[in-house]
């Protein structure tokens, strides 16, 4: 196999890259100065050499434990459980949460052969074993049917193992910047169930607990 064919074949393995795109990327690289290609090759090689999963939380890191797990300014009493490492990056971008993380490495998906044994659940239970500083687990799986099932599986498992531990879910409902007119019924129903009272407003509690903001 020629070098060109080999690189096309490698690019074509990437998600969302078809053969034509793989060829385009390959020919683009061929037109670049050699140093550009070398820099890309070094960056790809460094991924395999330097990046690993954090033995504590399962996030991707170059130092084990990762910078979040070892940061003394983070609240070790809060543990946010997410499906993928990319979810950690998304939450960090929001700069709102200051606790620790646990990356499951996926979600329950029987159709894809993913059961609890294929997720990073055993390590989560280890982290929450006796002597843990964690007082609340925030389950931040995606608001899909599979994410919901994963969340309910975790809630049930955590309740069995550590009944005193607080377990919560992220709120769900209308997206910021979205429009009510285009929201589907399920989203509107969830938004009503998780509605919040204005701080300081009187009246009855909301249907979904009506937590004050």
């Amino acid at each position: 196999m020629s070098a060109i064919e080999e690189l096309v074949a490698e690019f074509a393995k990437l998600p969302g890259i078809g053969r034509k795109t793989a060829q385009r990327l390959t020919y683009f690289l061929l037109k670049q100065p050699r140093e550009e290609s070398a820099r890309l090759a070094r960056a790809v090689a460094a991924l395999g050499e330097r990046v690993r999963t954090c033995s504590q939380c399962g996030d991707l890191t170059e130092a084990d434990p990762c910078a979040i797990c070892t940061d003394p300014r983070r609240d070790a009493g809060l543990l946010c459980v997410v499906e993928e490492a990319s979810d950690v990056a998304a939450i960090e971008r929001a700069a709102e949460y200051r606790g620790l993380y646990h990356v499951l490495g996926g979600r329950l998906s029987p159709l894809d052969g993913v059961g609890p044994d294929r997720l990073n659940v055993a390590r989560l239970l280890e982290r929450l074993a006796n002597g843990t500083t964690v007082r609340e687990v925030i389950v931040a799986t995606n608001p899909s049917v599979e994410g919901e099932a994963t969340a309910h599986y975790l809630e049930r498992t955590l309740h069995e193992r550590a009944p005193a531990l607080g377990v919560s879910r992220l709120a769900r409902g209308l997206p910021v910047g979205g429009e009510l007119e285009y929201a589907d019924g399920e989203t509107i129903a969830q938004a009503f169930a998780a509605r919040r009272r204005f701080p300081g407003a009187g009246g009855a509690e909301g249907a979904g607990g009506g937590a004050a903001a």
């Binding site: 998906s109 029987p110 159709l111 049917v145 994410g147 919901e148 099932a149 309910h152």
Partner: peptide, 26 residues
Amino acid sequence: IARGHAALGHDVGRFAAASALAELAL
């Protein structure tokens, strides 16, 4: 959507059974 089935994710048993039914069709 005529009928979403988000509630099937609220119970792992229902979710597992629904996945089996979907797989049978697939």
